[in-house]
Amino acid sequence: MTIAPPLDTSALSRNNVKISGNPAGRPIIFAHGFGCSQEMWRLVAPAFESDYKVVLFDHVGAGGSDLTAYDRSKYDSLHGYADDVLEILEALDLSDAVYVGHSVSAMVGVLASTHDPSRFGSLVLVGPSPRYVDDVDYTGGFSQDDIDALLDALDANYLGWSSDLAPLIMGNSGQPELGEELTASFCTIDPAIARHFARVTFSSDNRDDLKDVVTPTLILQCNDDIIAPRVVGEFVHSQIPGSSFVMLAATGHCPNLSSPDEVVKEIQDYLR
């Protein structure tokens, strides 16, 4: 008789991992992008529960993750986030997993699966961009000044927004419980971490990594997506060997909220 070593499950509480659906089904893991939390998938994930083992999680710094696990050196590149994904898959001992990554988490999935492809069965990249800033012979859609402007916009919105100041900012100083509810509801993110995450996200360049993807990949591209324009989605498609590309009818950057049914259908069709 062989005894398997105990699995390291610390990633599960660190990343606030939630498991639902069919325990015997193929695993499908949903990764949220910058600015939100696993709530981002709440109109999409339930559609997979009858057939799949559904795994949701928060990146460190978002939602119900363990903020004390935030190590600036580790999370100074998307590799730190990719390592977390690998640790979650390992802690749950999942194989043949479908990884669905939105926005920056599309690239997190690319990095995780190229570093260790063994647990991945499929990648679904929703609005991916390997580099947001324009470069010679490459259109990412943004300039370096735009990224600095985003950091200004973040600061303008989070000026003094910490948990103890939130009730004042929300104008509910007489009703602190209301303020608490507002920060503790959807898509809570830690402002300082959000700032660093924004810098890491929008200064990353992972174009070189796309050609190393060996996992079957579906790219879902929206119309009029300012964050990840169509040319960028097509670039990703051209670089990932054997990838499939689907143009959604949805517009904007968040089809998982604005057109969840279409997103569900395209993923299901691809996996069928």
């Binding site: 910058f34 600015g35 939100c36 735009d146 402007a149 916009a153 973040l154 964050i227």
Partner: peptide
């Protein structure tokens, strides 16, 4: 502006639609 666009698409709109 470009900075606000990114903020709107990644934060304002998702929170609005959820909340």
């Amino acid at each position: 502006t470009r900075g606000s666009q990114i903020f709107a698409e990644t934060r304002y709109l998702p929170v609005l639609l959820l909340e």
